[in-house]
Design a protein around this nucleic acid. Structure first.
Length: 584
DNA sequence: TGTGACTGCCC
DNA sequence: ATTCTGC
DNA sequence: GCAGAATGGGCAGTCACA
């Protein structure tokens, strides 16, 4: 008897209830410690599907399978149809509950009470997964109604609890308080009988996942073929490695301490992370989130074929846009125009690219993950054929830093050359490549103050959106406006969410004067859930002023965050559109 | 045939 | 991307 | 400090519909 989707949902509901990690893990283990017959359906083990359903995804990103292409708005419409409630009414409920899944469960329950039909055939793990895959596979003309029909069908036959997690899955927001790493931790406990063994199993699973980033397959393999099979996984051509990440440090003072003395520093370029896989003439490119982006960059493929010396390699790099007029590095916004499927040839001319390589994870079949940083850096430098590449593939600018002054000098040089700042890297012998880890071996330095804008901005709150999940029932984000002195209007510049603490949310919940209609003198293209009579002012940091079609001012802020409330400021004192224009 | 709503993925 | 929070 | 969750600007692609 295969496991029912309802059985999984019951466990998920219990996991969601607790915030204690040990309890979550022990509940999660129950799923995989069921009667062995339950973990097989149609002669196929279902461990992988169980994991995917818990992760809110059908496949790992790098498989290139179609996405659901269905999210909040379409789920809302489909739900409206299935339960016979108007979309506007559902929107209203949703604003209050802050959770699409909960809303669907609630509506389903109400609907059930008013109907007398018996239950249909219950959904199993596999049938549920198959139905969701049908949604993903619907493409082309009429596909939106087809997706909604399939979802309506699921909702017609499922229970309120199942409806809840179907909704969560489609939104890709499982909200279990438990994700990949905690799942690995939990699974490792099944394979271990004591603490030491558990640590070892966890390390093996994590390593396996980091170099074969498909948790469903890893867990299935562990159960079917044993932990030994996970140990044998190694970095290979065509399978992306989870990229190593850097921590962030605000000031420049902590770097010597964190690195324990001298360290390396590299320019941090404002482009797109690029993981290069080369095997002879075969090249595959992966993005930071492990999407296969090979087709976007035929020019990069050619460069790599011509200029990378090793036959087989996996390299870590940043790809940036080059301004064809000036030959200088162009902005991230320009590079993003290369994120396309059509007119690729034309945009290769319009937005040429350059590749900055900064690490090597595999060389001629041999894993370099355990090699120290300096050794890997040397391999990077030796891998590039400088004569052939004409400066289009380069090792990223690097320097060894011995003291604070050198760090500042190198940072300022980096900024002068139009980069985002520096990534500093430990040069200790144990400075290995740690896939997936955001540890302190790598630290990024983006500015010496908070935010990279020369100044912070003081902007007025002109609107609010309700929050979801953890922020349900409170504000999730604020619409912020700047003063246009020529017209006397407050023009919307950006929304902001980062920096809202529970405390700030509470204060503003009481102090903001929300209204239904847009106040006079407020100008905004986008519509918030509620307008606000502008009296409250917040101080904002950001990294850049961007050129924006979404704002009447033509400007917005990249990475906006709230620093503090400015109760001392008056509307007349806030930043002006001209102030912002001058920072662009 | 053009446009707006929606979605996914870069940062 | 940034930031906050519970463990 | 880790892991997870909630949110930002802005790009292209797709589909529905006028």
């Amino acid at each position: 008897m295969p496991m029912l989707f309802m059985d999984l949902c019951k466990v998920l509901a219990r996991i969601e209830k607790t915030s204690k990690r040990l309890e979550m893990m022990s509940l999660f283990q129950e799923i995989f410690q069921s009667d062995p017959n339950e973990l097989v359906e149609d002669d196929e083990p279902i461990h992988d599907k169980l994991i995917y359903l818990c992760q809110g995804k059908l496949h790992p990103d790098w498989h290139g399978m179609p996405e659901l292409n269905m999210a909040k708005k379409m789920v809302l419409k489909a739900t409206a149809r299935a339960v016979g409630v108007s979309p506007s009414r559902i929107t209203e409920i949703l604003k209050k509950s802050g959770d699409l899944g909960n809303t669907m469960g609630y509506l389903k329950k109400k609907k059930q009470q008013s109907t007398l039909f018996g239950k249909e055939e219950p959904m199993t793990i596999t049938t549920t997964w198959n139905e969701l895959e049908r949604i993903a596979n619907a493409t082309g003309e009429n596909s939106q109604s087809k997706k909604m029909r399939i979802l309506s069908g699921i909702l017609a036959r499922c229970s309120p609890l199942e409806a809840k997690y179907i909704g969560r899955f489609i939104e890709s927001k499982m909200r279990l308080g438990m994700a990949d790493l905690t799942m690995i931790d939990a699974i490792s406990r099944i394979f271990a009988s004591d603490d030491e063994q558990q640590k070892e199993c966890k390390a093996i699973l994590e390593r396996g996942y980091n170099i074969y980033p498909d948790l469903g397959t890893i867990v299935k393999k562990a159960f079917i073929e044993g932990m030994k099979s996970i140990k044998q996984i190694s970095p290979v051509f065509g399978i992306p490695i989870r990229p190593m990440l850097a921590q962030r440090l605000e000031a420049s003072a902590g770097f010597i301490d964190k690195h324990g003395g001298s360290f390396a520093a590299e320019y941090k370029l404002d482009g797109e992370r690029l993981q290069i896989h080369k095997d002879g003439k075969d090249i595959i490119l992966f993005s930071r989130r492990l999407e296969n982006i090979t087709n976007q960059f035929p020019d990069a493929i050619r460069l790599i074929q011509d200029c990378i010396k090793p036959v087989q390699a996996i390299l870590d790099a940043e790809i940036v846009a080059i301004n064809p007029e000036t030959g200088k590095i162009d902005t991230f916004q320009v590079l993003m125009q290369r994120k396309r499927k059509h007119d690729i040839a034309a945009f290769m001319q319009e937005v040429p690219i350059r590749i900055y390589i900064f690490d090597a994870m595999m060389l001629d079949g041999r894993s370099l993950l355990e090699e120290p940083y300096l050794k890997r850096r040397e391999i990077v430098e030796n891998s590039i054929d400088d004569e052939k590449c004409d400066g289009n593939i380069v090792a990223v600018e690097q320097s060894i830093i011995n003291n604070h002054d050198e760090l500042i000098a190198f940072f300022e040089r980096a900024i002068m050359e139009g980069t985002e700042g520096l990534v500093t890297k430990s040069i200790a012998p144990d400075s290995t490549y740690q896939p997936g880890a955001r540890g302190w071996l790598w630290i990024k330095l983006k500015s010496l103050a908070d935010g990279k804008l020369p100044d912070t901005l003081d902007l007025a709150i002109i609107g609010v959106n309700w929050g979801e999940g953890r922020r349900a029932g409170r504000f999730g984000s604020f619409f912020l406006g700047a003063m246009n002195h020529e017209t006397g209007n407050l023009e919307m510049i950006t929304k902001v969410s980062s920096g809202i603490t529970d405390e700030l949310a509470d204060i503003l919940y009481n102090d903001l004067n929300t209204v239904e209609d847009i106040p006079p003198n407020v100008i905004s293209v986008e519509q918030p859930d509620k307008w606000v009579i502008p009296t409250m002012i917040v101080e904002i940091a950001g990294d850049q002023v961007t050129s924006s079609d979404g704002s009447t001012t033509g400007f917005s802020i990249r990475f906006p965050r709230i620093l503090r409330l400015r109760k001392d400021k008056k509307i007349e004192d806030i930043s002006t559109v001209d102030d912002i224009k001058q920072m662009a």
